[in-house]
């Protein structure tokens, strides 16, 4: 039982892998999810650029992505993952399903945030002779920023939970570690240690995200 000197560095490595997966997936998710959320918002009826068909199609895609349990999604997108990364095992490969799972999630949160921006602000800006894309860039996104940051924080936390789930199929990181050492070798102490680590990571991220959002809202 007294093998913690051997396990601790591995636990550290696993934490690093989790942060790497979640970090890259977050960056990709923001890159894809925010534009998708903007499109969802502005193509809605009565919005900035109404387009009922596109709006319905996007809504359907997003709902599909949101309704699939992540563990199913992992298996489902395996061919895509293999196509992009060359393998389905390991933390780099896990980034693909993580991103695919989180983009619809963030897109909905972005849509909710942007819808909260008073329409009067949009109208006032249109009355200045602004283009629609200028309205998105100078009004919708900046006015919703505190709420968007909060949305990204929620997404990051969800990504950590997804990444731990990916461990079940050899995705690397803390989840993988907990399954291989804690579950398969009946080491409850290792499972507990990974849980504590996950909790600390989530707490830190949530705290940082809340702080950032608050600073934006009050500055």
């Amino acid at each position: 039982m007294n093998d913690w000197s051997r396990i601790a560095p591995q636990l550290l490595d696993a934490t690093g892998e989790t942060l790497y997966m979640v970090g890259v997936a977050t960056a990709l998710t923001v890159l894809l999810g925010v534009p998708l959320g903007v499109l969802l918002t502005i193509t809605a009826p009565g919005a900035l650029a109404p387009h009922p068909l596109l709006n319905r199609v996007l809504g359907l895609v997003v709902n599909l992505g949101r309704s699939l349990p992540f563990i199913i999604l992992l298996v489902l997108v395996a061919p895509v993952t293999r196509g992009i990364v060359g393998t389905t095992i390991g933390s780099t490969a896990t980034i693909v399903p993580l991103t695919i799972g989180a983009v619809p999630f963030l897109a909905r949160l972005v849509e909710t945030s942007l819808r909260e921006v008073a329409h009067g602000k949009v109208e006032a800006t249109l009355a200045m002779g602004a283009r629609r894309r200028e309205v998105v860039r100078t009004v919708l996104l900046p006015e919703a920023l505190p709420s968007l940051v909060a949305g990204v924080t929620v997404t990051v936390v969800a990504l950590i939970s997804y990444s731990a789930m990916a461990g079940a199929i050899g995705g690397g990181g803390l989840g993988d570690f907990a399954i291989r050492y804690g579950y398969q070798q009946f080491r409850t102490d290792i499972t507990l240690a990974t849980v504590v680590l996950l909790l600390v990571v989530v707490q830190l991220l949530q705290w940082a995200g809340d702080r950032w959002a608050r600073r934006l809202a009050t500055s």
Binding site: G120, K121, A124
Partner: peptide
């Protein structure tokens, strides 16, 4: 406008 419609982020 009645409700000013200023941007709170600016």
């Amino acid at each position: 406008f009645q409700h000013f419609n200023l941007l709170d982020s600016r």
